[in-house]
Design a protein around this nucleic acid. Structure first.
Length: 356
DNA sequence: TACACGTGGAT
DNA sequence: TATCCAAGTGT
């Protein structure tokens, strides 16, 4: 046994991980330099965006938001439509509504400063147990037990937790508590996430490079990919529907705003039918927003949501009418600036591809 | 507790 | 092509 081995053995897992983090941390736009306390607003904004969303997808949105609204009071003062437009394309749009509501609450009820306790943070819209713990640790340097999907993967592997998720959450939290150091809890949390994102990956983890490979039970048993154990997922149902792309003579396009809650809540859409399993194409025109000579376009728009797959048939028409109740015309040049979710951008792209 | 809630990249 | 899944929250 070499002296080096003896030192490693004496180090806690947290010390090993922090040592690794100091050398291999990812450099992300929302991370402060080592030793510098980050801006809680930046930490909060990034954490909300990163919920169920990849770092790569978040980066441009984070930069855009920080450019437009550098401080929480400025975001609080923004128009809701502008926030939704800026969020369009990032998904899970209730996050954007809660983001804005949270900014207003911080500005109005907390003097523009984020609460520095988990309890205080947890009371704000869009901040759940994970985000409250993450902000407490990362932005305020206080010890908190931060458990996200990365931590779940790392910890279930370290301890070969056989109980399936999410039932194992209390045990994972308990184990994470045991690993979390008193100091540098924020760095520890980010180190766990970096480890999960770069080495302790869902498939083909790079165990040989892992700073915790000597204490990992799953690695010792040669089956890291078997963790975390998850219950089998229900299959994804299919739904169908139609959308009606109407051009006025001046080129403006008919759109409407979806109801504030639920799927794509508050976002702009091309008017259409309900999306259902038993959609009948023959009945589609009954749902057209105006009477017109609707022409069915060849092909379909396909889009996959988390819990169902959608196939839309697109109808197009051109008329000179007033916008029906609840709908409005948008100049073609301004259409792309609307709060359009990705599925609606596909609809527009499909319709445009058949023009001229 | 279980389900609703987006999107795009990786395999 | 199909499936998985990525720093979860709200109901």
């Amino acid at each position: 046994m070499t002296p080096r081995r003896g030192i490693d053995r004496a180090m806690t897992a947290a010390a090993k991980l922090l040592n690794w983090y100091d050398r291999h941390r990812r450099h992300l736009p929302w991370r402060a330099a080592p030793g510098v306390r980050p801006d809680p607003y930046a930490v909060w904004l990034s954490e909300i965006m990163l919920q169920q969303t990849t770092v790569q997808a978040v980066k441009p949105f984070y930069e855009k938001f920080l450019r437009i609204w550098p401080r929480v009071d400025m975001l609080a003062a923004a128009e809701s439509d502008d926030v939704m437009r800026a969020w369009a394309g990032l998904g899970y749009y209730s996050r954007a509504r809660n983001l804005h509501a949270c900014a207003k609450a911080v500005a109005q009820d907390h003097g523009g400063r984020f609460p520095d306790t988990e309890e205080g943070l947890r009371a704000l819209p869009g901040i759940g147990p994970y985000t409250a713990a993450a902000i407490t640790a990362i932005a305020f340097g206080k010890r908190a037990i931060v458990v996200d999907g990365n931590v779940e993967r790392v910890v279930t592997r370290l301890f070969t937790i056989e109980e399936p998720m999410p039932r194992a959450k209390p045990l994972v939290r308990e184990k994470t508590d045991g690993l979390t150091p008193q100091k540098r809890a924020g760095d520890f949390a980010q180190a766990m996430m970096d480890l999960g994102a770069t080495l302790c990956t869902p498939r083909r983890p790079a165990c040989s490079l892992c700073p915790l490979n000597e204490e990992c039970q799953a690695r010792a048993e040669g089956r890291p990919e078997e963790f975390p154990v998850k219950a089998p997922k229900a299959e994804r149902p299919s739904r169908m529907g139609a959308a009606f792309f109407l051009r006025r003579k001046d080129g403006a396009v008919l759109v409407r705003t979806r109801p504030p809650k639920g799927l794509l809540g508050g976002m702009t859409e091309i008017p259409g039918t309900e999306w259902s399993k038993d959609f009948k194409l023959a009945d589609a025109l009954q749902s057209a927003p105006v009477e017109a000579k609707w022409k069915k376009l060849p092909g379909h728009v396909e889009h996959v949501f988390t819990h169902f797959a959608l196939r839309l048939t697109i109808f197009v028409a051109s008329t000179q009418v007033k916008a029906p109740k609840g709908a409005r015309f948008v100049k073609d040049a301004l259409l792309d600036d609307e709060a359009l979710p990705s599925v609606m951008r596909k609809v527009i792209e499909h319709a445009r591809s058949f023009e001229k």
